[in-house]
Amino acid sequence: MTALPPPSAKKLGLVIDLDTCVGCHACVTACKGWNDQGYGVPLSDQNAYGSEPSGTFLNRVHSYEVQPDQGPAQVINFPRSCLHCENAPCVTVCPTGASYKRAEDGIVLVNEDACIGCGLCAWACPYGARELDQAAGVMKKCTLCVDRIYNENLPEEDRQPACVRTCPAGARHFGDLGDPDSDVSKLVAERGGYDLMPEMDTKPVNKYLPPRPKGPEQQVDILAPLLDVKTTGFAGWLDRILEKI
């Protein structure tokens, strides 16, 4: 059913900390690793060892340089995956009912058996979160690792998305953003978490935490005071003479 369900109380999603992300792409690899053998068809690669390799990924990490008005530029690594939008345009455009948003926890999924691969949902998503698998011809997207988070066969600590579990910097957090008392909601409130492209009216569940403001530029060159040596003796005399000429 591609009608959106009424807003659920539970809104599972990710909170991504742009202050701590080091841009290692571990989440990209972990995501591909898990989802290649889990939910739905594998994430195929095309021409993997050729000159122009490409493939299906559910999570991508960009790197940006941000130049503030004052001070040096900052490098910000920016993971991008499905935001499990409340007002998901990708769901309502789907002609087959393959795309849907779960009423119980808000996860946006694709039923691959019903997907005709028309690609319209990928066009409707502002965030580039959907990629049509070139081998299977069906739409792939982040499942929020629905086959991990509820999976009782996994040890408790592994019942989180693969990307969250693997992130070495702790830059990805998973939880219920519908519950104002959850850890993720508190983190968002504390750090001023925000929505991507709010002008698209998608009401994303996932939030991004901005980089922490940097303090004033510090004198970083610890050798500088040592370089300002006053010369004495013959060298000092020479120095003075030379300056006069």
Partner: peptide
């Protein structure tokens, strides 16, 4: 607005 980093400064692809 796409990255939300506009409030920090001018964004460029690195």
């Amino acid at each position: 607005s796409a990255t939300g980093l506009g409030s920090v400064g001018k964004v460029r692809v690195l």
